[in-house]
Design a protein around this nucleic acid. Structure first.
Lengths: 123, 123
DNA sequence: GTATCGTGTCATCACCTGTTGACACGTGAG
DNA sequence: CTCACGTGTCAACAGGTGATGACACGATAC
C-alpha cells in the first residue's frame, strides 16, 4: 500500500517539522532545511528527506550541486487523507445519522446491553 | 500536541487494521477484534487498543466484563486531518476540484538544468 | 587541472517499540 | 460462596528505527 510508507513517514515529529517548513515555502534546499531543523543534524535531515521522498510526500529537484525539496500535494498524501476520511467518515461528514455502515457479515459479538447499558452515547 | 499521539498511533499497520475493522462495524469487543486481527495475539491487540484510545482515535465502552471499542470520529483524527490539509492544501484543493492526475505546475529551475546522471554505484 | 562546497550514503550505536506468555483484576453464572 | 470467562497489565526479549561522524560523489569556482 502506498499510504503505508506515508503513514510511517508522517509518524516522525522531525519529518512533520520538515513538512511544516516546506509547506511555508515553495521549496528549500537540503542545507537550508537542515539549518531550520535544529533538533537534529544534517545527516538526519537528509535521511528524513529520503524517507519523505520515498513515501511520496515531497519531491526533489536537482539544481547543480543543490537539491531543492518541496511538498508533493499530488503524492501519497491523498491516499492518507482518503483512508482517514473513510475510517472517520461518520464524524467528519456528520451525515450518517442513520448508521448506514453495517455491512460486516461476521459481526456477532456477545451483544452487550445486558440491563444497565442501553446503548452507547452518540456525540 | 494531541495529533502527535494520533500520528504515532496511525503509523502501525495493525492499528490501522483495527481501525478498519472498527470502521466497518458500530463497535466491537476486544476479543472479537482479536479474532479478526489474526496477525498478532490478543495481548498485542489489547495494547494497540490502548494506544488508539490514548491517542483519541477510538472510544471504549464497558459493558459488564466486555469492553467494546468504536471509532471516535470527534477525537484527534480531526487534528490529523486538519494538519494534513494544511500542509498539503495546495494539492488538496486541486483534488477537491477534480483532476485526479498530475496537475502540478512545472518546475522552473533558476540557474541549472537537470542534466546530471546520478551515477552512484560505488560497489 | 585542483580546491572547495553541497549533499547523500555508509557503518555503528543507542533507544524505542512491538510481541509474547504469565499473571491479576473484575464480572457474571452456578 | 466458588468457578469460569473476558480483559488488561507486567517483565522480558527481539526487532526495527533514528542519530551521528566519517567518507564518497558531483558540481562549481579558481
Amino acid at each position: 500500500m502506498t499510504s503505508d510508507l506515508a503513514f510511517d513517514a508522517l509518524a516522525d515529529p522531525v519529518r512533520r517539522q520538515i513538512l511544516a517548513v516546506l509547506s511555508g515555502t515553495d521549496e528549500c534546499s537540503s542545507g537550508a532545511l537542515a539549518e531550520q531543523i535544529t533538533s537534529v543534524g544534517r545527516t538526519a535531515v537528509s535521511t528524513h528527506l529520503r524517507v519523505l521522498k520515498v513515501a511520496g510526500l515531497v519531491t526533489e529537484r536537482k539544481a547543480g550541486r543543490y537539491r531543492f525539496y518541496s511538498i508533493d500535494p499530488s503524492g501519497s498524501a491523498r491516499d492518507v487523507l482518503a483512508l482517514l476520511n473513510q475510517v472517520f467518515r461518520s464524524g467528519l461528514l456528520a451525515v450518517n445519522d442513520a448508521v448506514p455502515n453495517r455491512s460486516v457479515p461476521e459481526d456477532s459479538p456477545p451483544d452487550a446491553a445486558p440491563t444497565d447499558t442501553p446503548h452507547r452515547r452518540p456525540a
